[in-house]
């Protein structure tokens, strides 16, 4: 287990050696989107339109932050449960999405889509104030009417995340508990 520093945009080279359970400090630009925004992404793609940002080699963070308090760059913003995005994710991976940050298990279809192409990270669920402080700049770039669910462009510094599903088919939610129990035997 090691802590790895990564900068976005990610590339295949940067993610290919990541392993489930690795702790990563992520810096650079990432984009936020929850289910309502994902639905609109797919609707746009289906109509042959562009997404609000070019998703190639980008990272999407599943978050709906609290309103930003005066004097802060961002509100509190921990991850939301990822399975609600499962239906939309494979399509975005097709479009070049390379990383997702959320919490909780992904469907088998998503896990299959990740193989060889993209990484699913978890941020610490509920650690929203700490994560909020890693965001240095935030701006809404699309779907402002969705409020906390609007799409934001974030500049983050040393955002602590953990590799859950690497590109090799490993899953920390399965292997983490298994390995812990094995050590206990």
């Amino acid at each position: 287990m090691s802590t790895i520093k990564l900068e976005t945009p990610l590339t295949f080279d940067k993610i290919k050696d990541l392993k489930s359970g690795d702790q990563v400090l992520l810096s650079g630009v990432i984009y936020t989107a929850r289910d309502a925004a994902h639905k609109r992404f797919i609707e746009a793609l289906d109509k042959g339109e562009k997404m609000p940002f070019d998703v190639k080699n980008q990272v999407i963070y599943y978050v709906g932050p609290t309103p930003t308090k005066p004097g802060f760059a961002f509100g509190s913003g921990g991850p939301t449960t990822s399975y609600r995005m499962d239906a939309y994710t494979p399509r975005l991976i097709e479009e070049g999405l390379i990383g997702m940050i959320g919490k909780g298990k992904r469907s088998d279809t998503v896990k299959e889509a990740l193989k060889g192409r993209a990484v699913y990270f978890a941020a610490v669920g509920g650690a929203a104030a700490l994560i909020g402080n890693c965001v240095k700049k935030a701006e809404i770039i699309a779907y402002e009417d969705l409020q906390s669910e609007a799409v934001r462009r974030l500049e983050v510094e040393n955002l602590p995340i953990i590799v859950v599903n690497d590109i090799h088919g490993n899953d920390l939610y399965i292997q983490g508990p298994q390995e812990y129990l094995k050590e206990k035997e």
């Binding site: 709906g64 609290t66 509190s76 921990g78 610490v124 650690a127 104030a129």
Partner: peptide, 21 residues
């Protein structure tokens, strides 16, 4: 430990510990 640190930050800065309030 991260969860504890988060709770302390939230209390000191008077901001929500979790975004889902």
């Amino acid at each position: 430990n991260i969860i504890i640190e988060n709770a302390n930050i939230a209390r000191n800065e008077q901001r929500p510990m979790c975004q889902d309030t």
